[in-house]
Design a protein around this nucleic acid. Structure first.
Length: 365
DNA sequence: AACGCGGGGGA
DNA sequence: TCCCCAGCGTT
């Protein structure tokens, strides 16, 4: 197949098979930009409800720019990769202050926005402004490596560069944004990582991986190293007769930056978990606490390590909590835990606290 | 070039 | 379990 035939087959397939998405064919550069940020390392089905909620809260880039970072993170809560939200918020302010509230339509300007790299710049410029920039994401890598029979390790930069060159050659003058979306849509729904539906694929006649029966070997990826596992002790500090608990705000430049948590940290070798909690709370807050009782144990996986979190109800013995490794500490009533952003594992602790509280259950001893 | 960065779903 | 996902920023 020549490039013209590849283009027309893909566009035709896309017109017949594209899934509806709230940002698709809307023509609003702000919505398209937001969708591309949310879709970084995130599936369409996972991002969609967050997109709708986000647009409800911040319908325009002006609303987003005027918002508080805590509001933005609260709406983003649960979606992960929270630097995306912080960067998007910062970029929205730049768009309002420096670009007259309009998402820039040139490469040099749009890549000034935090969180906009080569993929996102190409996606927004092509989809929102009909500019001829070819995207290369995980889908494009899979589709093109199979189609052209590229067997090199696609985790390596030079392999990705060569796939970018194929994509640059392929993208048409007409409807470049739809072409980009067509390749990605094909990768997401037909040319899937395992068990691709080659019978449904408009590119099957020219596909090297199909013809050589190598769709299960292409794209080739080197193994990722496996994630270490840590045990984390955290303290839920609560005074008898008071319904407030102590939470801490994580630094902006840390993992989960800008979100709240119950203070705690990693168990060290030879240490019992209650000791871990006492040590961490001393280090992080400068206080002495006593352990009242175990509260909850849960497992959670992050992108690069796994944890078992052990939470204990604690009481303050001496000292006044002051932020040492966090931005801020705050006593908050249990029903208000719903109002501030927590990462997933901590959110599970707050859910149990709120449930017990609502059911008039005794939290003390 | 390598690494850090969430959470969810499918095989 | 492991892998993958409409990647980017930092080092």
């Amino acid at each position: 197949m020549n490039n013209t035939e590849i283009q027309s087959r893909l566009i035709s397939w896309y017109d017949r098979n594209k899934r509806p998405m709230p940002w698709r064919d809307c023509g609003d550069p702000y919505k398209i930009w937001l969708s591309e940020i949310m879709l970084q390392q995130t599936r369409v089905d996972q991002a969609t409800p967050y997109f709708n909620r986000f647009i409800d809260h911040f319908p325009t880039v002006h609303d987003l720019a005027a918002a508080d970072q805590q509001e933005v993170l609260k709406v983003w809560e649960g979606l992960g990769y929270y630097s995306r939200a912080r960067n998007l918020h910062s970029a929205a302010k730049l768009v309002v202050d420096q670009f007259d509230g309009k998402v820039p339509d040139s490469w040099d300007e749009i890549t000034e926005l935090k969180g906009v790299g080569p993929y996102t710049a190409s996606a927004v410029l092509s989809i929102a402004f009909q500019k001829k920039y070819a995207v290369v994401d995980g889908n494009v890598i899979r589709v093109l490596s199979r189609y052209y029979g590229i067997e090199e390790n696609v985790r390596e930069t030079k392999t990705k560069n060569s796939i970018q060159e194929y994509a640059d050659e392929l993208i048409p003058d007409e409807r470049p944004g739809d072409f980009n979306q067509a390749v990605m849509e094909l990768g997401a729904t037909v040319c899937t990582p395992s068990n691709p539906e080659c019978g449904e694929c408009p590119l099957q006649p020219g596909c090297v991986a199909f013809k050589t029966v190598k769709t299960d070997q292409i794209p080739y990826k080197s193994k990722k190293k496996k994630r270490p596992h840590h045990h984390i002790g955290v303290g839920i500090i609560k005074q008898p007769g008071d319904d407030k608990v102590l939470i801490a705000l994580r630094p902006d430049d840390a993992m989960l930056g800008g979100l709240w948590e119950f203070p705690g940290g990693k168990q060290e070798p030879g240490e019992e978990l209650p000791e871990t909690v006492k040590r961490e709370l001393h280090e992080e807050l400068g206080v002495e606490v006593s352990i009242v009782k175990p509260f909850m144990k849960l497992d959670h996986a992050y992108s690069h390590f796994k944890i078992t979190m052990h939470a204990y109800l604690c009481e303050l013995q001496s000292g006044t909590p002051r932020p040492q490794s966090s931005q801020e500490v705050r006593w908050i009533s249990i029903e208000k835990l719903a109002d501030v952003p927590f990462p997933k594992a901590n959110r599970r602790l707050t859910e149990k606290l709120m449930n017990l509280n609502k059911g008039q259950q005794e939290l003390e001893i």
